[in-house]
Design a protein around this nucleic acid. Structure first.
Lengths: 223, 223
DNA sequence: CCTGCAAAAACTGTTAACATTTATGGCGCT
DNA sequence: AGCGCCATAAATGTTAACAGTTTTTGCAGG
């Protein structure tokens, strides 16, 4: 109507809309992604919808084989472990690189913001924030995109469903602090191993949670 | 005509064809990817071509912004370094996981094949082969896909243009051997660090080659 | 009641035409 | 000649209809 080029292309807007549908559970995990249905819903043709679904497939958020109907992935406990193993490897490397190449001023800023979080007068207490800032500071566009665009979407869905563990908050802060200190010391190797340990601990907490719930966070049909 | 479902969908066939065009340099690095042009060339409509190009964008092999024409990436020296840094992180982790979970028999087979390569009666002396087999054995589908599907395509293009360094062959073999020995000993940590060192050395060789050539392997316009 | 097959429905794959945006080339102006 | 503007050309974005495959439905037979 009047919203001229918020994202400029229908395909991109449609991607965001479908992603939100999945995020909010309106299309459940394991549920089907129907092109015609979505096209009608958004008042667009199937072209942009197809493009959006294909992008979701690129993120491995939906599976899609030749003539079969696309469906949202299940995000089983196994899937999450795999994602976290991948994060451990990539974010570890990102942290090493950021420790070696990030400008001093940005590191200081990062440290200051972290200190503000501790004093409870933080502007945005996003847990992912520090991870994202390290990813953006690693001076490797390919790693940055993989973390900030590809894995970020998956983590959003996971976090939305299992409101982040409150018990880990304090410990996570301490671990973040150590990581930033290693980075300020320009000790890439230490920074990497601290980040890996940090994510590894998160993985363990994740596994415990999954055990508690008996079954993984499943909102779609059971396997 | 008669080739019934080799890949079943036109979009997929078109993807392979366009990829080969890029691999062979028929579409040069930095060159434009014209949808209508390719559609006519392959006797298909623009739909499958669009889908193929979008997949190439997902691999970060072509860049494509809203209304601009898509173009093949440049693969500058910087790009290659970034790819190798990413490989170091992911293949390192893959190697650790493979060392911990790969079945004994597969590891033995891997060792035997490597021994055959040493004795010069190898069936297929593919350098990438051992990396791929480790990726496939890491028991993490997400990592496997990232290495075998995403990064594999990029490495193929790089290798096609700079016929793999012969001087490294012998050393690479020795390093592969050590990695497999660590895996057979089920020492994931050692296997990971050996794999990382292996890729790191390859990166250095790569950088030296680039220095020798004065400018990176550029077939498109210079940056 | 269950099983297996055949027709119908639903869905994805593909195409060609239309709409909109960007790139190109020529013209006049300074 | 060099620079900016405007018409034209070319490329991408979008749509609606058609084609082929898969899933569902319903019925007949055991």
């Amino acid at each position: 109507m009047t919203d001229t080029q918020a994202h400029s292309t229908l395909a991109e807007q449609t991607f965001e809309k479908i992603f939100n549908l999945i995020l909010l559970g309106e299309i459940p995990l394991g549920g089907f992604v129907n092109e015609a249905n979505l096209a009608q819903r958004f008042n667009v043709s199937r072209g942009p919808v197809r493009e959006a679904v294909q992008r979701l497939q690129g993120l491995r958020l939906v599976t899609r084989e030749p003539h079969m109907r696309a469906r949202v992935v299940q995000l089983s406990g196994r899937d999450l472990v795999e994602i976290f193993q991948l994060r451990e490897a990539i974010e570890g490397m990102a942290c090493r690189l950021a420790a070696e190449t990030m400008p001093d001023e940005e590191l200081e800023e990062l440290e200051d913001d972290l200190a503000r979080v501790r004093r409870r007068d933080a502007p945005a207490p996003q847990v992912l924030d520090i991870h994202m800032r390290i990813a953006r500071g690693c001076n490797n566009k390919r790693i940055e995109r993989l973390l900030c665009e590809d894995l970020y979407h998956l983590l959003r869905i996971y976090r939305y469903r299992s409101g982040s563990k409150p018990g880990r908050r304090g410990k996570a802060y301490e671990e973040h602090w150590q990581i930033v200190r290693a980075m300020r010391a320009r000790d890439g190797e230490l920074a990497e191993s601290l980040m890996r340990a940090h994510i590894n601990r998160a993985t363990r907490t994740l596994l415990d949670t999954l055990d508690d719930l008996d079954e993984p966070l499943r909102l779609g049909a059971g396997a």
